[in-house]
Design a protein around this nucleic acid. Structure first.
Length: 867
RNA sequence: GGGCGCGUAGCUCAGCGGUAGAGCACUCGCCUUACAAGCGAGAAGUCGCAGGUUCGAAACCUGCCGCGCCCA
């Protein structure tokens, strides 16, 4: 494949008849890497272009969502690289605290051990061992997809440098008073045994029960969590609720416990919900906690960290879900259950990692005060320093950052960045920076680790060397574009914005946030294991190739919209790659080349395709700037398939066969057009384009080739008009042939008149429409009249199918009549003529003229038919 | 309950004030020496419904209906 194509027209084919991705992909990828194509040079004088990869989870493997996101990023980076930017796409992974710890604990479980058997240090060592052996499978899969990432700069959130960044950030926030420790109600996972942040909780509408319990003669409360009554410390009513006004300040006896609890008045009680009286369990409900704070109520923690009841008595030792029916049964026995609604559908929070029902739990945790950080994060978008694309998505962003709660960052895990705070023997608290010695004897370090998102929030600058002032950081920060899904706009993006602006003295972490949608199946359904509609990108890559997989994903990528994919579309993408392969194959077989400048003497066909190419370059550039990947693919697909393959190549065949200088010129133009087309497509389908580009050039790689430059001098309106006219004539003849049932191979004698501008191309028309010259015995059995005054007389050597011909003409006439009627109606409307812009009126007049000419032409043809 | 988005050809989606488009699927005819993973031709839509704005609405406004997502 690397041999230089011969310039002779009789060169032998250099490519097999079908494109086989497996023969190309790994070979090409290895070549790119070993040639250092992806390695960014910090010392070059090119303008920088930086993207950091949204770090995939170290436990994960490549799913369609990754493949999609990576395809878009790769396309952006590859194009910028070709445009002469110093392009850096920085890869890496995050340590996924809960997921990874769960995974290794499960592994230990199969050996009959728990992490506690190993102890903290040995367990963490074991996790590292796991990572070394089987973590990061996704990195190899990214190579298969063709990701042009700079592997020399790969980072991991738990590596030394990033850990240093985490500690530095924590200390900085701590010293600025933006990190604090407090007893709060947090989301607790009784299975993972750790706190979760709000965003790690997923809500779903679940079937539960709503039980109304009589607390006294006058007070009935409704609850979905009857067991928590064991921890009630008050009943609350609205201060204006006439039903209960007289009870405020009194006490009731809490059933089953014998405890007496007060009735308090609180504005936040909704008098319309249930009976208007609510039970208050400050240690197990965030709203109740607030009520407890306002009324100085005690908090009774009535279950342990595993969700097991700890209140002494008959329920002690029961799991929360066993305790619920037990408590209800006990209350019923006392006649205290006045109503039960079952099933009762209500929103329930689940741990995003293990789906266990989250337990609101009162505990001592570390928090980030997000107030000032979130304000800055919002302002950076409001004042235009950071652009969200598509812009509509800004609304979602503001909705989140402008209402952000403080962020619980401590996790009761062992795998992660340990909180750098030490507690002294006399209750002292000291935050230790990265270059400070931990305090000595008698001090103990906090046992918790930080939320994984804390380290991910530093990603755009920690990966470049922060907190050191590295050359990379100076050169590649702020990053150019963040490509990510709208679903984590508030998860991750908002965190990076807060941290980036704060740590980098107000410099935003990225200039543009390009949001994409979710990958869905061909019916727009979310891919899920339980639904059985998950498609594995690795499977597609095996069967259709990485390029086909990428093209399918990019072709569906409308900004911010979800992307449906299906195997059929991937097949279509594979077909497209094969089409390119064969077009290049044809070109090489016919001596197309890329040597020397374009000839000055060019045929109309050559000038036409070059002109079309310029429009395509222009459009592609404009669409790339707007992240319109679907439209980029569409434009290039149609140019490649319709213009280049279906028309230019077909028009070239007779030229090449005729030989001479025109053939020479066409060989050069064909080589040029393919060269440019392959460059334009390379960002999206890197493998096949590189293989073909090398076949065309004999050397190098398209990955280092220059991005096509717009050359307005090549735009040629006259050539375009001529070829379009030619296409109309050819298509009209083909249509006639098809309607008449003439076989494609059957040549038909014809005489062409009134060709006008296309007269010089009559021989091309004859070639494409398979027409023979009119001989001495020529007698037209049918005459076609094509728009533009072209008349085609055809000798079909026999009776023509009059009915078919009439039907065709009637159809054309109906269309022309409709068109004419519409135009006349408009022009007859004084308001239209008076108010519509001049150019619109002119256009309608032209359309009417065309339609009337068509009617006359078709009418005459019909008349001739019946004669 | 609050917010956001979407209803256009059989399917999936573009179009977002001036002649309704694409891919796939479909119909007909073809192994025409680059490609049957292909070639040529074709059929297919009162643009969810109802009002309004406008010379002109698939597009802008209002309401309704039906889906989806996020937040509480």
């Amino acid at each position: 494949m690397t041999q230089t194509p011969e310039t002779s027209a009789i060169s032998t084919p250099t490519l097999p008849a079908q494109y086989t991705p497996a023969d190309v992909e790994s070979r090409r990828y290895e070549a790119w890497v070993s040639d250092g194509v992806f390695t960014a040079d910090v010392a070059s004088d090119k303008p920088p272009f930086t993207i950091v990869i949204p770090p995939p989870n170290v436990t994960g493997s490549l799913h369609m969502g990754h493949a999609f996101e990576h395809t878009l990023m790769d396309a952006l980076v590859r194009r910028r690289r070709m445009q002469g930017y110093e392009a850096l796409w920085l890869p890496g992974m995050d340590h996924a605290g809960i997921a990874t710890q769960n995974l290794v604990e499960r592994q230990l479980g199969t050996e009959g051990k728990s992490r506690h058997d190993l102890g903290r240090e040995a367990f963490v060592e074991r996790v590292w061992q796991w990572k070394a052996e089987s973590g990061g499978a996704i990195l190899g899969q990214m190579r298969r997809l063709g990701d042009s990432v700079d592997w020399s700069r790969e980072r991991f959130t738990m590596d030394e440098g990033l850990s240093r960044a985490v500690q530095t950030m924590f200390k900085k926030l701590f010293d600025d008073g933006l990190i604090y420790r407090a007893n709060r109600i947090i989301n607790w996972c009784p299975r993972c045994l750790t706190a979760l942040s709000d965003i790690e909780v997923v809500h779903s509408d679940d079937e539960g029960e709503l039980v109304s319990i009589r607390y006294s003669d006058e007070i009935v409360v409704a609850t979905t969590r009857a067991e928590t009554m064991l921890g009630d410390t008050a009943v609350a009513v609205h201060p204006d609720d006439e039903r209960y006004k007289h009870l405020i300040g009194t006490e009731v006896e809490l059933p089953l416990t014998g405890r007496r609890i007060p009735v308090v008045a609180d504005e936040h009680v909704d008098p319309a919900f249930g009976t208007g009286a609510v039970k208050v369990t400050p240690a197990h409900d965030p709203n109740d906690f607030e009520i407890g704070q306002r009324h100085d109520l005690p908090s009774i923690t009535m279950m342990d960290e595993r969700g097991v009841i700890t209140v002494p008595g008959p329920f002690e030792g029961l799991d929360r879900f066993e305790a619920r029916p037990a408590v209800v049964a006990a209350l019923r026995e006392q006649g205290r259950i006045v109503a039960e609604k079952r099933p009762y559908v209500h929103a329930v929070g689940h741990c995003s990692r293990c789906r266990t029902t989250v337990e609101p739990r009162l505990s001592l945790q570390w928090f980030v005060n997000t107030g000032p950080l979130a304000k800055a994060a919002g302002d950076a978008v409001r004042d235009g320093r950071v652009r969200i694309d598509p812009e509509d998505m800004s609304k979602r962003y503001f909705a989140w950052v402008d209402n952000m709660h403080d962020w619980c960052i401590s996790r009761q895990l062992w795998w992660g960045h340990r909180i750098p705070v030490w507690y002294g023997p006399d209750g002292e608290v000291r935050c230790v920076g990265p270059d400070e010695e931990p305090p000595g004897e008698g001090w103990e370090q906090d046992t918790d680790v930080l939320d994984t998102w804390f380290s991910s929030g530093l990603w755009p600058f920690s990966t470049l060397g922060w907190p050191e002032r590295t050359p990379d950081l100076a050169r590649f920060y702020p990053t150019s574009v963040l490509v990510t899904g709208y679903d984590i706009l508030f998860f991750w993006v908002a965190r990076m914005m807060m941290f980036g602006l704060y740590a980098m003295d107000g410099k935003q972490p990225f200039d543009v946030i390009a949001l994409h949608g979710m990958v869905r199946d061909e019916h727009g359904k979310k891919m899920s294991k339980s639904f059985g509609n998950v498609v594995d990108p690795l499977d597609w890559m095996d069967r259709f190739g990485a390029d086909a997989t990428r093209f399918t994903l990019a072709r569906g990528a409308n900004p911010g919209q979800d992307v449906p994919v299906s195997e059929e579309w991937c097949q279509g993408s594979r077909n497209f790659c094969n089409k390119l392969w064969n077009a290049t194959r044809f070109a090489l077989m016919n001596g197309a080349h890329v040597d020397g400048p374009l000839p000055t003497e060019l045929s109309t066909t050559d000038r036409w395709i070059l002109s079309r190419l310029e429009h395509v370059i222009d459009e592609a550039d404009e669409l790339f700037e707007r992240f319109e990947f679907a439209k980029i693919c569409d434009v290039l697909y149609h140019f490649a398939w319709d213009d280049v393959c279906d028309w230019y190549v077909e028009l070239s065949k007779p030229v090449l066969a005729a030989g001479g200088p025109a053939a020479e010129a066409t060989r050069r133009v064909l080589g040029h057009v393919l060269d440019q087309l392959l460059r334009l497509l390379h960002p999206v389908i890197p493998f096949v384009t590189d293989e073909l580009w090398i076949a065309l050039h004999g050397t190098g790689t398209v990955a280092r080739a220059a991005w096509p430059q717009l050359d307005k001098a090549l735009v040629d309106d006259a050539a375009e008009a001529e070829i379009e006219a030619l296409q109309r004539v050819v298509t009209e003849i083909r249509r006639f042939r098809s309607d008449q049932g003439l076989r494609p191979a059957q040549r038909v004698a014809a005489r062409l008149d009134g060709l006008g501008v296309v007269a010089p191309h009559e021989w091309l028309i004859r070639s494409l429409a398979r027409l023979d010259d009119a001989g001495a015995e020529f007698a037209a059995s049918a005459t076609l009249s094509v728009a533009g005054g072209v008349r085609v007389g055809l000798d079909t050597r026999g009776a023509i199918d009059v009915a078919a011909e009439r039907a065709r003409l009637e159809k054309d006439r109906a269309a022309a009549e409709k068109e004419a009627a519409q135009c006349r109606a408009k022009l007859g409307n004084e308001a239209f003529v008076g108010k519509a812009p001049e150019h619109v009126v002119t256009k309608i007049k032209e359309r009417l003229a065309t339609a009337e000419a068509d009617l006359a032409r078709i009418g005459a043809a019909l008349e001739a038919l019946s004669a």
